[in-house]
């Protein structure tokens, strides 16, 4: 039943809106490489990336400062799933599918299409029913948002600017400048 709903629902999605979502995801992914590849992500499918992006956006929503989606949290997680977090691949694959199915069963929509209230409701339930997966996504979202931009997230050091801390200064300057006491 859930699967069927999922399929039905996708067909019902206004095509322009759906493509728009895909395009956003693809655009943010293009910045991290894989330029010519048909799939913009290293591990995630486009659907998974959309769902993950929507989850992360509820964990760190957009307000006067950028939220998790614009900060490239999905790019961070996708990159780590191809690196140190390879061990979490199965957890993500199954977890993201489960949440889309739950969304389809409850609201007849993909998770990425839910309203903020609906999404929060579902995530609050997930926190209780699948705590391990949920805590993992929360931790990884925080890393991608507040961590170092070199790892694919925190685009333009957006969170550091939000917190009011200076971004990384020039490294190795002392090699080129004679210190005053020398």
């Amino acid at each position: 039943m859930p699967v069927r709903l999922l399929v039905t629902n996708r067909a019902k999605t206004p095509r322009r809106k759906f493509l728009g979502l895909v395009a956003t995801a693809a655009a943010s992914a293009a910045t991290i490489s894989c330029g010519g590849s048909r799939r913009p992500w290293r591990f995630l499918s486009t659907d998974e990336a959309l769902t993950l992006s929507a989850i992360s956006e509820r964990i760190i929503p957009t307000d006067q400062d950028a939220g998790a989606a614009a900060a490239g949290v999905v790019a961070y997680i996708d990159r780590q799933l191809n690196g140190p977090y390879r061990r979490f691949r199965k957890t993500y694959r199954e977890g993201l599918l489960a949440i889309d199915n739950a969304s389809a069963a409850r609201f007849s929509r993909r998770f990425a299409e839910l309203t903020a209230e609906q999404a929060d409701q579902l995530l609050n339930e997930l926190e209780g029913t699948k705590p391990r997966f949920f805590q993992l996504v929360v931790a990884h979202t925080m890393q991608g948002y507040y961590g170092d931009p070199r790892h694919g997230g925190n685009t333009d050091a957006v969170s550091w600017r939000m917190l009011g801390v200076p971004t990384v200064p020039i490294r190795g300057r002392w090699k080129y400048e004679k210190p005053p006491w020398a």
Binding site: R58, I60, P61, D65, Y146, M162
Partner: peptide, 28 residues
């Protein structure tokens, strides 16, 4: 910044707008 995520007190939710507000307000 990322270390500070774990410094939030227990009455601040672990995620969502309230946590982001906490980070923005409390970090400095």
């Amino acid at each position: 910044p990322y270390q500070f995520v774990g410094h939030a007190p227990n009455n601040v939710p672990r995620w969502g707008k309230a946590h982001k507000d906490f980070m923005r307000h409390a970090y400095r």
